[in-house]
């Protein structure tokens, strides 16, 4: 198990180095940072001084090494646009995105899993067919369209919920949370539904497909033959067997949501990382873009590693001593 963890961490580190390299290349390809940081009246001496200060005279590899070393400490330099530390900017925005994503993920699991189980059990009923049809709509509906529709209905027409922003937030240490104030919670409702809809349908369809598969297995038939009641068969034996793919997909989707929450964030003017990134692109704010790339990749890689480790907890066959495969104890 330890060797497995080490292997996973080593490969994760490899992926991160590659991503950092790509992020680093952005600096080189998008032009001379000195030109962007100084105005046109700057003298050659000023330019040279800045060039020296930024370490641009070092060799390519040394610059990359320094970039990686700083990034590992959470230092991504200074934003071109507003001259603030990039890490401070991201630190301010990240909690907003993460809260939105986690609430959306929780929604998708709480709604998606039971619906998936139920549509698998009663797969011929009208209700199941309706849910199944609705889920196709959910998969195909673009989130900006849904977001705008929700704003129109609940904010403009009905006036129940705020159309934009995060509401009041409370700072707990470095973390600013909107979950502790009622305006913060209300502001979270529409964006999280917008973000969650696709996930709900994804989880639902996944659980349904896995359940249908599982319900055909011999161990379910044998559980029936043992006379166990339906709720145990469906929710203990059946669902447990579906958890692996659900964990995999959820893990990867959390990464996706963080990376692609930017559409929802733009629609709802949500002050998260996505908004920060969109602004950075508009102003060619390369340090912010590079930092965003590295952080999002880090989240992806970290989640995937955690998912791999979680497998062992869900499936005992994967934590057998020695090999990862099943080892048969002689009887």
């Amino acid at each position: 198990m330890l060797a497995f963890i080490l292997r996973r961490i080593a490969s994760a580190a490899g992926v991160m180095l590659t991503v950092a390299f790509l992020a680093f290349l952005i600096f080189r390809f998008v032009g001379d940072p000195v030109d962007m940081m100084l105005n046109e009246q700057a003298t050659q001496e000023q330019r040279d001084a800045l060039r020296e200060r930024l370490g641009l005279n070092d060799s390519f590899l040394i610059q990359y090494g320094k970039f990686v070393a700083r990034a590992a400490h959470g230092d991504f330099g200074i934003s071109f646009r507003n001259q603030q530390d990039v890490s401070t900017l991201i630190g301010e925005r990240f909690p907003a995105t993460l809260e939105l994503v986690l609430v959306a993920t929780a929604l998708s699991l709480i709604i998606g899993i039971p619906l998936g189980v139920i549509t698998a059990i009663y797969r011929r009923s009208v209700l199941a067919e309706t849910v199944q049809f609705a889920s196709i709509v959910g998969v195909s509906l673009p989130s900006f369209a849904l977001g705008i529709f929700l704003i129109l209905l609940f904010s403009v027409k009905l006036g129940w919920l705020p159309a934009f922003g995060r509401g009041e937030t409370v700072d707990i240490g470095f973390w600013s949370t909107g979950l502790l104030t009622s305006s913060g919670r209300r502001a979270l409702i529409l964006p999280s539904i917008t973000l969650a809809l696709f996930q709900i349908t994804l989880v639902l369809r996944l659980v349904r497909a896995e359940m249908l598969e599982t319900l055909r297995t011999d161990f379910i038939k044998f559980a029936r033959a043992r006379g166990l009641p339906n709720w145990i068969i469906y929710f203990r034996h059946g669902l447990r067997n579906c958890l692996m793919p659900v964990i995999t997909i959820t893990g990867m989707q959390i990464g996706n949501l963080i990376a692609f929450a930017l559409i929802t964030e733009t629609v709802f003017q949500w002050p998260g990382m996505g908004m920060l990134f969109i602004q950075a692109v508009t102003f060619v704010d390369i340090p912010v873009m590079a930092a965003y790339l590295v952080i999002v990749s880090f989240i992806f890689v970290a989640l995937n590693t955690v998912v791999d480790l979680l497998y062992g907890f869900v499936d005992p066959r994967l934590r057998a001593k020695g090999a990862m495969g099943a080892s048969h104890a002689a009887a």
Partner: peptide, 11 residues
């Protein structure tokens, strides 16, 4: 049943 490999819940 026939197959003890698949009759028991693996988890």
């Amino acid at each position: 049943f026939q197959d003890p490999l698949t009759s028991l819940h693996p988890l």
